[in-house]
Every structure is written in structure tokens, then in C-alpha cells.
Write a protein that binds this DNA or RNA. Structure first.
Lengths: 218, 218, 218, 218
DNA sequence: GATTAAACGAGACGGTACGTCATGTCTTCTA
DNA sequence: TAGAAGACATGACGTACCGTCTCGTTTAATC
């Protein structure tokens, strides 16, 4: 007694028209004023056709974003062997996606939607973020193998340190993601991820300051 | 010929009731299903009283968040002189706010709303983010004066590197913000911001890789 | 590029429910406190369904009134050949409608609404008043053919003289529309409409008073 | 423990400004879209000053109408002794008020309001209609004394027959109240009210048709 | 002339209903 | 028989007014 439709009978023309219409409209009016009805009209499609195949407006936008990214061929992780060069390229490509006129609004919309939609966050993890993050983690691990990145650091943490600052500035709009910024960010982040060799008195305080840590770890 | 209401005649009881109701409701049903009507009913207030004083639902939630924060006395920036200790405390306090049962939903809501509301982003900059960020930047500058942080790095970039990873993980829900994570993040971030003195071959590649940089800097 | 809905797809169940609810509510609370929202709730119908098919609250009540009248089978014009008898029957049937517990309020509401709504007055003319008045005028003409009514008088004027006094008393509530009144009114009106035979000095003054008439006819 | 205000301290300037504003606004936007707030603003008066002295919007308009009528000096009942002349003058003056550009809308508004407001209908009876109707009835009685009007007819019925047709046409907008109509109406109505002496076969049927009347009077 | 109490203007308030909009479901017609 | 078209019940939107309720500010009448 399943009510789910038969995917083999799905009209691909309709699917494509819907994603195109969604992409166009989100660029025109933004996510807040984007409506299912408008998408249906623009796509020349019945509303039910949208409701049949997507659970929410956010899911449509998410799929539209994926389609746009495929057109742009996605994020490639550079690997020249030179960590500084690779890092700059990686950050630049990431930033380029965030400020791309066609992609920025959908990105913000998806980021927005996952805050309140557990289904969509799962979707995002599996189909957009997951591949990207695991590729990044592999890239990090290889750099660790080459002793370019401190092997003691969890790759997941390195990922946060790489992408986090970029997203933070982008989301809070505290400044532009221009070349100057990327340059400064790369210079600042690079030492974090490089192998730490000599003793570092500050670092020591983190690992060993007993009274504070005791209080903290309660 | 101004149509704006007279703030001196504003009912403080209504204002407080509205903020309380908003805080309660956002915790109960989340931001998406939060409605102005429900806030008005819960607060025992006419809808117009909300529309008179706030331009949008997001603005109400933002004020409710500010009020909650004031109750919690806000974020204090620690300054023991030990950079590692201070950094951990700072990150821990920040993270504590993000995962506080009363604050998490409002935080996500505000973060969400500023993506699509230029007025609110300005409000946020002035009244929530601004004070916090400038305090953080001052803290950084003092640490730079003590030669605990590389004086060549723009404090704004340091801010991004400090808070960015935390927000990134929190927004994308790629993992918990628990003590283990904060410990690892502190350990990873600390070297970024400490003064780098000796020659660093990787750093050199960032500053000097001619062919790539040439292409980039066009 | 028409935005008007397709009448062939109209839900007749909703239509009937709306008219019934309107009739009930107007009897319960009167026209002034009758609201579209209450009609929608009582009818188990969305407000939009009302707004889709009727332009105003008055129009709904008007249709409700028409439906009630159809149930009561409307006004029949009697024609026994005896003018006095017919006239009394006509006035009595008219008065019966005006004081019917189910119809009085809707009648007053419609009369009220047409004072301020040109669209509704047209509607009224075509669908309620028109048929009644033209039937009455035909009835008058046949009586004139039988020389029971002065053939020189415009049937439209006769109509006013027939119905006007009744409506006047009903609208201004200057007295009851009971049998005594109908009896007196019939007795008074009958001579108006009967063929005038003998010379009438007063009548003469109307037709011949030169100075006054001169001033009037300018 | 009376809450009613002290009439001796009433501001006459405000009273007049309110009535003027009401008269202006009803001419501009009609009664339906007339609001107390708009009257208050236009009159430069606080809303409470209106609510303090009038129980309803209809009451304000009623007073505004009375004031307008006083300016126009009201309806004088002509009495030349020639019934036909007097009747024409009376109908003409009545009709003139109904179609006066300044008075028509307020008249319709008041007529409308009394349908649903028992307080106002009483007010109307006492202050507007009452004096007019009793004057008319006196006029009729004097004509009856002069044997110009059938003394057997109740003056109240005569009043209805006089004014009713005019109001009927005016309210239902079935035709203009121009000189031609007034001429025809006068000619038609005059015989009703004149003394009928000789035998009238139709009249007889009214008074004596047993079978029909019997059925009716049950 | 100072006091004082009520009417006044202004307008914020808790409400109700408005008419519109978008949602997600359901039905009808068409390819 | 899937899909377009769109009517439907639902319910929130933001607005307009309602009638009540403070607020100072006149404005008379009393002291």
C-alpha cells in the first residue's frame, strides 16, 4: 500500500523544466519570495507534479543547485604537491562558488533550509557535502602521509579550519571574499595544518594547563 | 508628517510579553512554524502592536535573542594572559551559546534570516555581532602587542579563523561541539595565531609561487 | 489572460453550503454583524471560495435571498378579474414576504446594500426586481385593456403607487403591515388606479393650474 | 456614579468640525467607506471626542444630515388651499431633498442605518421624521375638514400613499425623480386622497367580496 | 489670579475582520 | 494513466478600524 510514485514513469522534461524554473526564480526574487506556484507556472507544470517528486521547496532548490553545480562541473580538489599552492586553489575555488551570481542565492537558500529541515540536512550530507568533505579529508590524509600536515590532527578538524573561516565571513557578511582576503587567509591557515616540530610554549599550555582543564572537563 | 509611532508611549509590558512569547514559541515549534499571530495570541497582544514596533518576524526573534542573551549576561572575553587558556575559554563560551537549549534555535533563526534580509543583517552587525567582534579584535590586538599573536596578520582574519570552524560545524551539523572537539580545535588553531618567526618553506611557497600566483592575481 | 475562475468546475456543494450558512447567520446576528469569515466557517468552506465567486458580502446575501425565495416559490400575481380582490392579494403577498421571519432580514440587507453598491443594484434589477416589476406592469396593462385601470396612467407609476406605500411603512417602521393596514391601503389605492370617469375639480387643478405648472415645467 | 459627560462643557467648535467633516467625507467616499477615524482626522479631533458624544457612526451622520437640513431650512408644507397645487409642491420639495447632491448620500445612509439600528430609528422618528409626518398629517386633516380629502381614510395611510411611491422609486432606483415623473405621480395620487362620493363597483368588491376575504382573514 | 476638574488632541492598545496569498490535497479533463 | 490545470480547505499574512484607555494640554468655572 505504498503511495510513492513510479520513478520509471517520471517525465524528465518536466523535471528539468522545474529545476530550470526554480533556478531562474531564485535568482530573480530570492528564496523568501520563491513559491511553488510560481515554479509550476514558470515551468508549465502542474503543482502536483512538484509535490509528487519533492518533499519541500527547499528540496527543489537543493536539486536545482546540484544541477547548476554539475553544469559548472563542481569543485575539483587540486593536488600539485605544494601544500601552499593547493590550499590557495582550494579556497579560491570554494570562494568562487559562494560568490558566483548563479550559485550564491541557492547556496544561501540551502544553508538556510537545512537549519530547520532534518530531512534536507541528511540529503545535503549525502549528495553535496559528503563527497566534497570526504575528498577533502582524503586530500588532507595524503598530505599527512607526506608529512605536510601534522598527522596528529583529526582531518575533520582540519576541514573545519580550512572551510570554516570562509563560510563564516560569507554567512555573516563581515567582509568580501576577494583575492586579498584569500591571500591573507591562506597565509594564516597554512601554519595550522603544517607539521608542528619544535616545542611551543603556548601549545604546551593547551595540552598541559591542569587547573583550567580540570574545571573545563567537568 | 511622520507616521512612525512615539517610542515614549510604548508599553513595556507588551514589549516584554512579545519577546517572551517569541522565545517560548521558537523553542516549541521552531522558526519555520513560528507565526506573528501565535506570538500575538500567546503574548495577549494585538497583532498591530507587533507590526508597529518590528518590521519582520526575524526582527522580533532577533530582539528576543538579545533579551535572552542579556539574561545570560552575554559573552565575556577572558584574558588571563595565557593565550591557550584564553582561547579555550573563548571557544567554549561561544560554543556554549550555540548549543544552549534556549539560544540555539533563535541563533539559527537569526543566522537564517540575515541571509535574505539586508535590514536585519545591519541590525545584527550593530547590536549583536559588532560589539562581540570588536571586543575580539581588541583582544587579538593586545595579544599581538604582547607578541603572542603574529602581528602581521589582520585581526579580522584571526577572528574568522577563531570563530569560523565552530560555526561551520554547527551550521552544517557535521559533528558535535563537545569538549573533545573544542580541545582538538584549540590545539589546531593555536599555532595559526601564534607569532611565526623562523623561516617556513611552505609559507614561502604561498608568497612566492610565481606561475600560479600570476594567473591568480589577474 | 483571464483570471476569472471556470464556472464549470465550481463545487455546487460549497455553493449551497455558503448560501445556507449566510441565510442562517443573517437570521441569527443580522446583516451588520454578519462576516464573511463566519459564513466560511459555518459552511465549512475556505474564505477564498467565497471571494472567488461573489464580489461582496451583499452579493452573497442577495443570492441567499434568491435561493430562499425559490424555495418559497416566489411571488405569484393573482388575476381573478376582480381588480379589488387581485390588488388585495397582491399587496398581501408582497407584505407577507417583507415580514416573513426568514426573509425580512435578507430583504432589509439587500435594500440596504444596493444604496451603496451600483453593481448590486444592477444585479437586483435583473434577477429579483425586474421579473416582478415587469409581471406587475403586464398585469396592469391587461387591467387597462379591460378598462379597470385608467389607461392614461403610465404602468410604471401605477407600480410605484401600488408597492411604494408598503415599502415606505416597512422601511421607516412607521407602523405594522397587518391586515387592518392592508385593508385600508387597498381601499385608498384602488381609486387611484381605476378609470377616472366623472369630472373632478381637484384633478382639474392639477392639469390646469397655469402659474404653478408653468414654473414646474421649466 | 454616572459616566456621561457634561453637555455644558462641550466644545461647540469640535462638534461643528465633526459634523462638517462627516458631511464632506460621506460625499467623497460614501457611507460604506466612511470611518470614525477619518472623521476625527479630518475634523482635527480626537476619536474619543466623537465616541463621547455619539453612540455610532450612523448617529454622527444623522446629526450631520440634520445640520445640513437646517442650513437648507427644511421642508415647508405648502398650503394654498388648492390641493393639487399643494400636493405638487409637497412632492417636489420632498423629491428635491432626495436628489440634492449634498443630501442624497446622507439620506441614503440614514435610511440604511435605521434598518439595523433600533436606537437610530427612534432618534429618526423623534427628530427628523416625526415633525415632518405630523405636519403632513395635520395638513391632511385640514384638507379633510375642507372635504378635499376623503375623511374616512386614516391620515397615516394617506401619508404612505403620498410619500411612499417617491421613496420606492428613489430607493430602488427604478427611474428618475424628474418633473415628468412628479407630474404623473401627482395626477395619479390625487384621486386617491380626494373624497370619493358616488358608488364605485371596484371599491365595493374590496369591502364585500366574501369568499376571498374570508380565506384571507383567517 | 491661582486652582482644579473636565473636555480635549493625540495616539497606543487589545481586538476583529478584512481581502490576499501560498500551502498541500483533490478532482476533472486531456494527450 | 501520468500530467496540466485549477478549485478546494486551511491558515497566515499585513492592513484598516473598532472602541477603550492612557497621556499631557487647554479651557472654564470656582475659590
Amino acid at each position: 500500500m505504498s503511495n510513492s510514485p513510479d520513478p520509471t514513469r517520471r517525465s524528465n522534461a518536466s523535471r528539468q523544466a522545474i529545476l530550470d524554473a526554480a533556478a531562474e526564480l531564485i535568482a530573480e526574487v530570492g528564496f523568501r519570495r520563491l513559491t511553488i506556484e510560481a515554479i509550476a507556472v514558470r515551468a508549465g507544470v502542474g503543482k502536483q507534479t512538484i509535490y509528487r517528486w519533492w518533499p519541500s521547496k527547499g528540496a527543489v532548490v537543493f536539486d536545482a543547485l546540484l544541477a547548476l553545480q554539475h553544469d559548472a562541473d563542481g569543485l575539483r580538489i587540486p593536488e600539485s604537491g605544494d601544500l601552499g599552492v593547493d590550499l590557495r586553489l582550494l579556497l579560491r575555488e570554494t570562494a568562487a562558488g559562494l560568490v558566483d551570481p548563479h550559485l550564491e542565492e541557492p547556496y544561501r537558500a540551502v544553508l538556510t533550509e537545512i537549519q530547520h529541515d532534518p530531512v534536507l540536512v541528511e540529503e545535503l550530507r549525502e549528495r553535496l557535502l559528503g563527497p566534497l568533505l570526504s575528498a577533502t579529508r582524503d586530500w588532507i590524509r595524503r598530505a599527512q602521509d607526506r608529512c605536510q600536515i601534522n598527522a596528529a590532527t583529526d582531518p575533520a578538524v582540519v576541514v573545519d579550519v580550512l572551510y570554516g573561516p570562509l563560510f563564516y565571513r560569507w554567512l555573516l557578511r563581515t567582509g568580501p571574499l576577494d583575492e586579498d582576503y584569500l591571500q591573507a587567509l591562506t597565509a594564516a591557515v597554512l601554519p595550522v595544518i603544517t607539521a608542528s616540530s619544535g616545542p611551543n610554549p603556548l601549545r604546551a599550555s593547551v595540552e598541559g594547563s591542569p587547573p583550567v582543564v580540570a574545571g573545563i572537563e567537568d
